[in-house]
Design a protein around this nucleic acid. Sequence first.
DNA 1: TATGCTAGGTGTACGGCGTACACTTTGTCA
DNA 2: TGACAAAGTGTACGCCGTACACCTAGCATA
Lengths: 227, 227
Amino acid sequence: MATGIDSKAPQRESVTRERILRAAVDLADRDGIQAVSMRKIAHELGVVPMALYKHVSNKDEILDGVVEVLVGEIDPPATRSDWKTAFRERILSARRVLLRHPWASRVIESRTQPGPALLAYMDSMLGLFRSGGFSMDLTHHAMHALGSRVLGFSQELFDDNADVDPEVEAEMYRAMGAAFPNILELASTVLHDDSTVVGGRGCDDQFEFEFALDLMLDGLERLRDRA
Amino acid sequence: MATGIDSKAPQRESVTRERILRAAVDLADRDGIQAVSMRKIAHELGVVPMALYKHVSNKDEILDGVVEVLVGEIDPPATRSDWKTAFRERILSARRVLLRHPWASRVIESRTQPGPALLAYMDSMLGLFRSGGFSMDLTHHAMHALGSRVLGFSQELFDDNADVDPEVEAEMYRAMGAAFPNILELASTVLHDDSTVVGGRGCDDQFEFEFALDLMLDGLERLRDRA
DNA sequence: TATGCTAGGTGTACGGCGTACACTTTGTCA
DNA sequence: TGACAAAGTGTACGCCGTACACCTAGCATA
């Protein structure tokens, strides 16, 4: 009681690197990635923007840190499973993280150097391949081939999550019909098939993701066995 | 000579949508994508920033247009080839475009809706699958699986083009050794193997790209034949 | 020839951004 | 008690996209 450090008074919890990262994640979850600015993070913490610079050196460092936080949310690899199951499960765990944080893939893509958590994740994924009997060379190619899929996302060419009302969409397809017959046919096939699919959206993203993942894993396994 | 529209005086060529797009591409090629701003484009055209808004409605429209320009640079599909060769060649042509414009993949990723040129490209690629005897369903999954690879790029997890001097890099690997043994082993394998590779860099990106592409195409072909 | 419309270009301004730099405040220990 | 360092503040700069009012030149019509 003499020292004055008694944790009595709540005294407006002070800023730390960790609180900054948490605020950034929360902000992105709540208001989207474009809401993550030094000013808004600071506001969230009840502090002036420049105060953040006592704990991080710039915004990029915050984004790097956010990626590390996200990677930290991925489950550890299952022990006592064959390499393929363990690998697949871990990727699907990463994917669940990304689905919780829809803005995350954009942030990850924007980073240019991996931090310790991401390195550890990659190292562990490499280890799974090696334990499955893959040569170092093939493991290397495999990781490149998988690309961002090892983190649970794939780069779709355009975001079909845009919510256009079905009427407009139907009109669009009609207009496209003459010029783009294959797209038209694809659209009608997909829309027809998926009447039962969750959300009524065009395609089942989870299915497409696992389809592509298994296509790669099976192909890689075949290459391993051929050698 | 009476009308006054004589094309004698050069009279400082006026702004058009096309000149705006060309200026944007040139600017990105020369100074990087972050240099593409309304102000800089306008400056490039010898005009005030707000003048651009008489020809495009906002910056997003310019970026959409830039993507269309890029897609227009992709070679048309080879006629008289089997589906796989034609498909592969066209993707590699798209890749050449992206290598000419290293900033392009970032712009493409940032777009949310495809324009006419991209739709036409996709339609034609779908057509190649169909002509190769793929069902509409399998074609659909194939396009999802390929993702941005149909446009010639793959989303690498981090950009190993960062130019760190080899000494620093070696030190990094040494430090990593204990914590990330697999990465260390991979790095030494790759660095050893690639002493002859173009540019002396870590990996041969073109090889990795084609490796992954062929892995997918072969896998897809097998699925087609099984059905 | 005079009138007025229109397309294209201008100037100013606003609110956002990241962050450099100089400052005050606060808490700790000698 | 006084010094020092760490944490937080305030102001300012140069960027960004773009809303809005304005000006100007060229043209068709009366």
